[in-house]
């Protein structure tokens, strides 16, 4: 991906950064089978079916044949009701969830914004900053360099020396601020943001929205999952509307949002 302009076939062409080609994603859920959840029920189920694919395993077809191409410089919103497959699709684009069928092609490594999973409540905020930074793929030096920046941004230490306390002692707002600050410390090629980002009090919300704008400027392509039509309108120039895992509509923000609002009865 060193110099794309060289092998650009037609001048003035848009450069694709993410191509989704008929992507299907299926989750397999153990113990989610119908009927009673007791041990005898589970046993008799195994006896009855005796082998085959679905021995107490239920399949959830979360994304069904989504195809689209995203280009450099685009900010794309993903909308749809709860459980429509938006977050799942993002994970597939990031290469974190294997597609059952179809393929996702990307330029560079798309990253989800968020490190929640790597952090541990029993550790101090300080160690979580380091752990989170390393988990996102920063080098030790990079983490050291940005440490103060992250702590200052989170504002955790504004009310005393909280950063040296275990994270489980933080209020939910404080913890959310620290998590966001760690996650937003790194720049990404293809950035994906999964809703509910603006957390914390008013002051922090303003600050985090500003940081997201910065990240967006530096990233090639941005995906944003959100239930707030306002933040989609503010951020995105193109919107994908997913419903029941299928791509219902793909087009300019205003057009898709208007249809979506009409459908959802707003």
């Amino acid at each position: 991906m060193a110099d794309i302009s060289l092998d650009k076939p037609e001048a003035g062409d848009r450069i694709p950064t993410v191509i989704a080609d008929d992507v299907h994603i299926v989750y397999r859920v153990n113990g989610g089978s119908r009927g009673k959840g007791s041990a005898t029920a589970a046993l008799s189920r195994i006896m009855r079916r005796g082998g085959g694919e679905s021995r107490g395993v239920r399949k959830v077809h979360a994304v069904r044949g989504v195809t689209f191409t995203a280009y450099r410089g685009e900010a794309i919103g993903l909308i749809g009701s709860n459980g429509s497959g938006k977050s799942t699709l993002l994970r597939a684009i990031a290469g974190l969830l294997p597609a059952e069928k179809g393929r996702v092609y990307t330029d560079g490594q798309p990253s989800l914004l968020g490190v929640n999973a790597a952090l541990m409540n029993d550790l101090t905020g300080e160690r979580n900053v380091i752990l989170g930074g390393l988990a996102m793929g920063m080098s030790r030096e990079e983490v050291k360099e940005r440490y103060q920046e992250i702590v200052d941004f989170s504002g955790i230490n504004e009310k005393g020396d909280f950063i040296t306390l275990p994270m489980r002692t933080y209020s939910s707002g404080m913890a959310a601020r620290l998590r966001f600050s760690i996650a937003a410390a790194k720049n990404h090629d293809v950035l994906m943001i999964d809703e509910a980002l603006a957390t914390g009090d008013q002051k922090f919300r303003v600050r985090s929205e500003e940081r997201i704008r910065e990240l967006r400027k530096e990233a090639g392509t941005v995906f944003l999952v959100s239930h707030s039509n306002k933040s989609i309108r503010d951020t995105c120039d193109r919107v994908l509307w997913l419903e029941k895992g299928e791509l219902l509509m793909d087009g300019p923000t205003e057009e898709v949002l208007r249809a979506y609002e009409k459908e959802s009865g707003k």
């Binding site: 092998d7 191409t69 597939a92 684009i93 990031a94 294997p98 996702v104 330029d107």
Partner: peptide, 11 residues
């Protein structure tokens, strides 16, 4: 299209 722009399979 992916091949033309040097995109690789994600994941």
């Amino acid at each position: 299209l992916a091949a033309r722009y040097g995109l690789s399979v994600s994941g």
